[in-house]
Simulated scan of single mutants.
Amino acid sequence: MMTDIQTKVLDDERVQEILQGLTQGKTRDELAEEFGHKNYKTLDMYMRRRDFEWDSDKGIYKLAMEKPETAMIDTSKAYRIIQLIEQQEEPNLQRIAQLMGFESYKALAAYMGAHHYSWSSEQNNYVKQVVVEEPSPQSAPKIPSEPSQATATILSQLTVNTEEEGLAEYFSLLKMLKNNELRLMNLLQPYGVGGQIPRYTIPGVAKTKTVQMIHSLDQMVTDFAKEKNMTQRDVFEVALIDFFKRYGYERQVEVLLK
Protein backbone atom coordinates (compact mmCIF):
# COMPACT_ATOMS: atom_id res chain seq x y z
CA MET A 1 0.00 0.00 0.00
CA MET A 2 1.22 3.50 -0.84
CA THR A 3 1.58 5.90 2.10
CA ASP A 4 0.04 9.40 2.16
CA ILE A 5 3.53 10.92 1.83
CA GLN A 6 4.33 8.84 -1.25
CA THR A 7 1.00 9.79 -2.80
CA LYS A 8 1.76 13.47 -2.17
CA VAL A 9 5.14 13.09 -3.89
CA LEU A 10 3.65 11.44 -6.97
CA ASP A 11 0.93 14.11 -7.25
CA ASP A 12 3.27 17.11 -6.84
CA GLU A 13 4.78 17.93 -10.24
CA ARG A 14 7.07 20.61 -8.78
CA VAL A 15 8.66 18.07 -6.41
CA GLN A 16 9.27 15.69 -9.32
CA GLU A 17 10.80 18.50 -11.42
CA ILE A 18 13.14 19.45 -8.57
CA LEU A 19 14.25 15.84 -8.03
CA GLN A 20 14.77 15.32 -11.74
CA GLY A 21 16.70 18.59 -12.01
CA LEU A 22 19.13 17.38 -9.35
CA THR A 23 19.68 14.11 -11.26
CA GLN A 24 20.55 16.23 -14.32
CA GLY A 25 23.33 18.01 -12.40
CA LYS A 26 21.56 21.28 -11.59
CA THR A 27 22.35 23.02 -8.30
CA ARG A 28 19.78 24.13 -5.73
CA ASP A 29 20.47 27.78 -6.61
CA GLU A 30 19.82 27.10 -10.30
CA LEU A 31 16.58 25.28 -9.51
CA ALA A 32 15.49 28.03 -7.12
CA GLU A 33 15.97 30.64 -9.85
CA GLU A 34 14.19 28.43 -12.40
CA PHE A 35 11.10 28.05 -10.22
CA GLY A 36 11.00 31.67 -9.05
CA HIS A 37 12.33 31.20 -5.49
CA LYS A 38 14.52 33.84 -3.90
CA ASN A 39 17.34 31.39 -3.16
CA TYR A 40 17.96 27.76 -2.30
CA LYS A 41 16.80 28.34 1.28
CA THR A 42 13.24 29.02 0.12
CA LEU A 43 13.56 25.94 -2.11
CA ASP A 44 14.54 23.92 0.99
CA MET A 45 11.51 25.33 2.82
CA TYR A 46 9.24 24.29 -0.08
CA MET A 47 10.60 20.72 0.04
CA ARG A 48 10.46 20.51 3.86
CA ARG A 49 6.76 21.34 3.73
CA ARG A 50 6.42 18.25 1.59
CA ASP A 51 8.28 16.00 4.02
CA PHE A 52 11.67 16.17 2.30
CA GLU A 53 15.03 17.05 3.81
CA TRP A 54 18.38 17.88 2.21
CA ASP A 55 21.12 15.24 2.36
CA SER A 56 24.36 17.21 1.97
CA ASP A 57 26.51 14.07 1.65
CA LYS A 58 24.59 12.73 -1.34
CA GLY A 59 23.43 16.07 -2.77
CA ILE A 60 19.75 15.04 -2.95
CA TYR A 61 16.44 15.56 -1.20
CA LYS A 62 15.12 12.52 0.62
CA LEU A 63 11.92 11.79 2.49
CA ALA A 64 12.29 12.83 6.13
CA MET A 65 10.59 9.60 7.22
CA GLU A 66 13.52 7.52 5.89
CA LYS A 67 15.89 6.15 8.51
CA PRO A 68 19.64 6.42 7.93
CA GLU A 69 20.07 2.68 7.67
CA THR A 70 17.43 2.38 4.92
CA ALA A 71 18.18 5.63 3.05
CA MET A 72 20.97 4.05 1.01
CA ILE A 73 22.09 5.88 -2.13
CA ASP A 74 21.44 2.81 -4.30
CA THR A 75 17.85 2.56 -3.12
CA SER A 76 17.33 6.29 -3.71
CA LYS A 77 18.80 6.04 -7.19
CA ALA A 78 16.61 3.08 -8.09
CA TYR A 79 13.60 5.00 -6.78
CA ARG A 80 14.40 8.01 -9.01
CA ILE A 81 14.79 5.73 -12.04
CA ILE A 82 11.33 4.28 -11.40
CA GLN A 83 9.87 7.78 -11.02
CA LEU A 84 11.44 8.99 -14.30
CA ILE A 85 9.99 5.99 -16.14
CA GLU A 86 6.59 6.50 -14.55
CA GLN A 87 6.47 10.14 -15.68
CA GLN A 88 6.67 9.13 -19.36
CA GLU A 89 3.81 7.50 -21.23
CA GLU A 90 6.36 5.87 -23.54
CA PRO A 91 9.59 5.83 -21.53
CA ASN A 92 12.87 6.32 -23.39
CA LEU A 93 15.14 4.01 -21.41
CA GLN A 94 18.28 5.16 -23.24
CA ARG A 95 17.59 8.82 -22.35
CA ILE A 96 16.77 7.93 -18.74
CA ALA A 97 19.99 5.92 -18.51
CA GLN A 98 21.99 8.94 -19.66
CA LEU A 99 20.23 11.23 -17.17
CA MET A 100 21.10 8.86 -14.34
CA GLY A 101 24.76 8.53 -15.36
CA PHE A 102 24.72 5.11 -17.07
CA GLU A 103 26.51 4.41 -20.34
CA SER A 104 23.46 2.68 -21.85
CA TYR A 105 20.05 1.26 -21.01
CA LYS A 106 21.74 -2.15 -20.68
CA ALA A 107 23.88 -0.82 -17.85
CA LEU A 108 20.76 0.64 -16.23
CA ALA A 109 18.98 -2.74 -16.50
CA ALA A 110 21.99 -4.49 -14.97
CA TYR A 111 22.00 -1.98 -12.10
CA MET A 112 18.30 -2.49 -11.38
CA GLY A 113 18.70 -6.27 -11.57
CA ALA A 114 21.58 -6.16 -9.11
CA HIS A 115 19.30 -4.29 -6.68
CA HIS A 116 16.50 -6.84 -7.01
CA TYR A 117 14.30 -4.98 -9.51
CA SER A 118 12.87 -6.61 -12.63
CA TRP A 119 10.92 -5.22 -15.56
CA SER A 120 7.13 -5.67 -15.46
CA SER A 121 5.45 -5.53 -18.87
CA GLU A 122 2.10 -5.14 -17.10
CA GLN A 123 3.15 -2.00 -15.17
CA ASN A 124 5.61 -0.87 -17.88
CA ASN A 125 8.19 -0.18 -15.16
CA TYR A 126 10.62 -1.87 -12.78
CA VAL A 127 9.14 -3.62 -9.74
CA LYS A 128 10.77 -5.05 -6.63
CA GLN A 129 11.52 -8.77 -6.82
CA VAL A 130 10.66 -11.23 -4.11
CA VAL A 131 14.00 -12.16 -2.56
CA VAL A 132 14.11 -15.65 -1.09
CA GLU A 133 16.59 -15.65 1.79
CA GLU A 134 18.46 -18.85 2.56
CA PRO A 135 18.03 -20.03 6.17
CA SER A 136 21.07 -20.37 8.42
CA PRO A 137 22.55 -23.88 8.84
CA GLN A 138 21.30 -24.04 12.46
CA SER A 139 17.69 -23.35 11.54
CA ALA A 140 17.61 -24.79 8.04
CA PRO A 141 14.74 -27.25 7.66
CA LYS A 142 15.23 -30.59 6.00
CA ILE A 143 14.99 -30.16 2.24
CA PRO A 144 12.40 -32.53 0.73
CA SER A 145 13.36 -34.68 -2.22
CA GLU A 146 10.77 -32.88 -4.40
CA PRO A 147 10.24 -29.07 -4.33
CA SER A 148 6.98 -27.87 -2.84
CA GLN A 149 4.33 -26.22 -4.96
CA ALA A 150 5.12 -22.82 -3.39
CA THR A 151 8.85 -23.20 -4.16
CA ALA A 152 8.10 -24.23 -7.74
CA THR A 153 5.85 -21.18 -8.17
CA ILE A 154 8.56 -18.80 -6.87
CA LEU A 155 11.22 -20.34 -9.09
CA SER A 156 8.90 -20.10 -12.08
CA GLN A 157 8.19 -16.42 -11.35
CA LEU A 158 11.89 -15.65 -10.97
CA THR A 159 12.54 -17.28 -14.37
CA VAL A 160 9.80 -15.16 -15.97
CA ASN A 161 11.23 -11.99 -14.35
CA THR A 162 14.69 -12.79 -15.72
CA GLU A 163 13.32 -13.30 -19.22
CA GLU A 164 11.29 -10.08 -19.07
CA GLU A 165 14.35 -8.15 -17.87
CA GLY A 166 16.24 -9.33 -20.95
CA LEU A 167 13.40 -8.10 -23.20
CA ALA A 168 12.85 -4.81 -21.35
CA GLU A 169 15.49 -2.98 -23.37
CA TYR A 170 13.45 -3.56 -26.54
CA PHE A 171 10.02 -2.44 -25.27
CA SER A 172 10.45 1.25 -26.13
CA LEU A 173 11.71 0.35 -29.62
CA LEU A 174 8.76 -1.98 -30.27
CA LYS A 175 6.30 0.70 -29.14
CA MET A 176 7.90 3.26 -31.45
CA LEU A 177 7.66 0.83 -34.40
CA LYS A 178 4.01 0.12 -33.62
CA ASN A 179 3.11 3.81 -33.34
CA ASN A 180 4.78 4.51 -36.70
CA GLU A 181 3.54 1.39 -38.47
CA LEU A 182 1.84 3.26 -41.33
CA ARG A 183 4.86 5.44 -42.07
CA LEU A 184 7.18 2.43 -42.03
CA MET A 185 4.93 0.56 -44.48
CA ASN A 186 4.98 3.55 -46.81
CA LEU A 187 8.78 3.61 -46.68
CA LEU A 188 9.23 -0.12 -47.20
CA GLN A 189 6.62 -0.67 -49.91
CA PRO A 190 7.18 0.55 -53.50
CA TYR A 191 5.08 3.33 -54.97
CA GLY A 192 1.46 2.37 -55.57
CA VAL A 193 0.29 -1.04 -56.71
CA GLY A 194 2.92 -2.93 -58.68
CA GLY A 195 5.51 -0.21 -58.10
CA GLN A 196 3.74 2.40 -60.24
CA ILE A 197 4.89 6.00 -59.85
CA PRO A 198 2.07 8.24 -58.58
CA ARG A 199 0.87 11.30 -60.46
CA TYR A 200 -0.35 14.36 -58.59
CA THR A 201 -2.76 17.09 -59.59
CA ILE A 202 -1.60 20.24 -57.86
CA PRO A 203 -3.96 23.24 -58.03
CA GLY A 204 -2.60 26.70 -58.74
CA VAL A 205 -0.81 28.74 -61.38
CA ALA A 206 2.25 27.23 -63.06
CA LYS A 207 5.50 29.14 -62.56
CA THR A 208 8.87 28.78 -64.24
CA LYS A 209 11.76 28.08 -61.87
CA THR A 210 15.35 27.82 -63.11
CA VAL A 211 17.60 25.47 -61.13
CA GLN A 212 21.21 24.67 -61.92
CA MET A 213 22.40 21.10 -61.47
CA ILE A 214 25.29 18.83 -62.40
CA HIS A 215 25.19 17.64 -66.01
CA SER A 216 25.16 13.96 -65.08
CA LEU A 217 22.16 14.49 -62.76
CA ASP A 218 20.35 16.48 -65.45
CA GLN A 219 20.95 13.65 -67.91
CA MET A 220 19.60 11.14 -65.39
CA VAL A 221 16.36 13.17 -65.08
CA THR A 222 16.01 13.25 -68.88
CA ASP A 223 16.62 9.50 -69.26
CA PHE A 224 14.26 8.60 -66.42
CA ALA A 225 11.45 10.77 -67.83
CA LYS A 226 11.77 9.12 -71.26
CA GLU A 227 11.91 5.60 -69.81
CA LYS A 228 8.82 6.11 -67.60
CA ASN A 229 6.93 8.13 -70.23
CA MET A 230 6.77 11.18 -67.93
CA THR A 231 7.47 14.85 -68.34
CA GLN A 232 10.40 16.30 -66.44
CA ARG A 233 7.91 18.46 -64.55
CA ASP A 234 6.15 15.28 -63.34
CA VAL A 235 9.49 13.85 -62.18
CA PHE A 236 10.31 16.92 -60.12
CA GLU A 237 6.81 17.18 -58.63
CA VAL A 238 6.80 13.54 -57.50
CA ALA A 239 10.35 13.86 -56.13
CA LEU A 240 9.58 17.04 -54.19
CA ILE A 241 6.31 15.74 -52.73
CA ASP A 242 8.03 12.52 -51.66
CA PHE A 243 10.88 14.57 -50.09
CA PHE A 244 8.47 16.77 -48.13
CA LYS A 245 6.53 13.72 -46.87
CA ARG A 246 9.69 12.05 -45.61
CA TYR A 247 11.12 15.07 -43.84
CA GLY A 248 8.36 16.55 -41.76
CA TYR A 249 5.98 18.27 -44.21
CA GLU A 250 3.27 15.57 -44.37
CA ARG A 251 0.54 17.92 -43.16
CA GLN A 252 1.54 20.68 -45.60
CA VAL A 253 1.49 18.18 -48.48
CA GLU A 254 -2.00 17.00 -47.48
CA VAL A 255 -3.26 20.60 -47.54
CA LEU A 256 -1.56 21.21 -50.92
CA LEU A 257 -3.17 18.18 -52.58
CA LYS A 258 -6.71 18.83 -51.30
Rank of each mutant, 00 (worst) to 15 (best):
Y200D: 05
R183W: 14
A71H: 04
N161E: 09
I18N: 05
D44S: 02
V238A: 15
Q138W: 10
T231N: 04
I214F: 00
Y40K: 15
V205Q: 09
A114I: 02
V160I: 13
I60F: 11
F102C: 04
E163K: 15
M220K: 04
S56V: 07
I73G: 02
D57W: 00
G195I: 00
A152S: 10
P137V: 14
F244R: 06
Y105K: 13
Y249K: 12
E165N: 13
N124H: 07
T162D: 05
L43M: 01
A239M: 12
P147A: 13
I85S: 04
V235E: 04
I73H: 02
E164V: 09
S76L: 06
V235I: 10
D55I: 00
S120C: 00
P91D: 12
Q138K: 10
I18R: 05
S104K: 15
N161K: 11
M45P: 00
L182A: 10
E17Q: 03
T210G: 03
L84D: 03
M100V: 08
T208P: 01
V9E: 14
A206E: 09
G36D: 05
A225D: 03
P91I: 05
V238E: 14
K142P: 08
Y40I: 06
I85M: 14
Q138P: 01
E237H: 04
A64I: 00
R50K: 05
I197L: 15
R251C: 11
A239V: 09
K38Q: 08
M185N: 07
Q6I: 00
I96R: 01
Y200I: 02
M112H: 04
M100D: 05
Q189S: 14
E133S: 11
M2R: 13
